[in-house]
Amino acid sequence: MLEAQLEPYTQLRADLAARDRSLREKVMSLEEAAGFVQDGMKVGIGGSTMSRTPMAMIWEIIRQRRQDLSCSRCIVSTDGDLLFGSGAANHIITSWFAQGILWGLSKVMRHHVETQGKRYEEWSHMGVGMRYRAGGMGVPFLPMRAMLGSDVMRQRPEAKPIDCPFTGEKLLLVPALNPDVALIHVQRCDAYGNAQIDGLQFMDIDLALAANRVILTTERIVSNDQIRRRPDHTKIPFFCVDAVVEVPYGAAPHECFGIYEPMMKHMDAYVKQVNADPVKGMQQYLEKYFYEPKSWNEYLALIGMNELLEASQLGRSIYND
């Protein structure tokens, strides 16, 4: 098992110093932004489970046939299936990996982990959070009190139990996680990458600070004046961000808080298909929804107008009362 592959602090600082952090427009297409993700990279994925998944960016990375990615996310849903099933990732760091609690176990994850040698590296949910936070803070580890005594800890030699130098208590040190690139989907940002997140923010702020590059996809690009009217809503500052891509319904078929809920008919059909045959079912799904459409809009059209509208009605209803 590997040591935690910590990047030396001086290297981390040098990488950041070399980034162009000026106030400049970064708007580009999905195709262009995918250029930040190269084979073998560590990719941090924002959102959680079926929420604010940067699905359009994942879709584009899979279409461009990236390989050997090591992906991390606090909780993985069908995005994990698709990354394993397409061959884009061979390693996923997370705390929970299935399509969603409504559907039981993911046969796709099981197939790839049990018989194909792909790695699902399990940490507790807080463990993933403390790893991103340490990465975002510029320290090599953080202490925590969960995972001690469990086999989750015993499986992770990268985590070090210690006796606290102040109190003598047992604590667990978890190593920083600094992804090469983070993919984060938000409700709105400006052309510079000042990103506003409504509702649940999950681990996205720590992830953005920890990563060496950040690709933002957004439901809407708004003016910098709009951002400046409500700076308290800005959760990710522009100087963390390297690419801005406007992608309406960019988390589909998952949800984006206040705009659309998960597209459950599509999700149900997907799960049925891939769990019936995790190889052929997945291949057919990828062909139809990932490789054949000419654009993200064509992909949305395949999900269907009714689904999109229904999910939108439910999504916006959070603001009705």
Partner: peptide
């Protein structure tokens, strides 16, 4: 069988 894992359960 590889099950889904801890999520927040361990914490």
């Amino acid at each position: 069988t590889r099950l889904p894992g801890t999520g927040g359960g361990n914490d």
